[in-house]
Simulated assay, not measured.
Amino acid sequence: MLTASKPLRAAGAAAASIALLAACAPDAVRNRQATDFNAYLDSLKTACPNMIVGTNNISEWLRTSGSRGDDDYVYWLDQTSRLYYQRITAQQYRDSVSAALGGRSDSSALDCIVRHLPANRPTGLPGGRL
């Protein structure tokens, strides 16, 4: 009986770990239903060429889909998702991204990102995520 419970305990621990990791992932990374957000990111490629914040080339991230191993990219993507879904204000976005990436909150890259937000963007994440 003890040997049968070990695999169940291991499976339960694995499931809990996966759920915990998914909860910590940025909205844009964990939510594959975010087609409108992805379209917004795609539109920035042409609307805002040569975006640089600090030493980070956001335009290059958009061209190459970034790297999930790059903490700056993951942070920028998460904050941009929060901005897009109206979970933070434009000023909060500017302040947090510029502080994290070492840029200025009034950078032309951040101006362009905010300026090109769709007027009627959603207030909640697709799939009912908070």
Rank of each mutant, 00 (worst) to 15 (best):
V74M: 06
T80Y: 02
S96Q: 09
R94V: 02
T55W: 13
L101V: 01
Q91M: 03
G54R: 01
A4M: 14
G124C: 08
G124Y: 07
T123H: 09
G124A: 12
P118Q: 06
S105G: 07
S17G: 14
L77Q: 00
R82P: 10
V29R: 01
R104C: 10
R115T: 10
A25G: 08
A28R: 00
N56A: 12
T3A: 15
N57I: 05
I88K: 00
A28L: 05
R121T: 05
N120D: 15
L41M: 11
S17T: 15
R32S: 14
K45H: 10
A99T: 08
P122E: 05
S96C: 08
Y75V: 08
T89P: 01
G128N: 02
D72H: 10
L20E: 13
A90V: 09
A4S: 14
L21Q: 09
G128F: 03
V74A: 01
S98H: 01
S59L: 09
M1N: 14
Y84M: 05
S43G: 03
A28K: 05
S108P: 06
G54V: 09
R104E: 04
L117I: 05
Y75G: 03
G12Q: 10
T89D: 00
Y40G: 01
I58P: 04
I52V: 15
V53Q: 04
M51V: 07
R30L: 10
A13Q: 14
Y40N: 08
I58W: 06
A22Q: 13
G12T: 11
S81T: 02
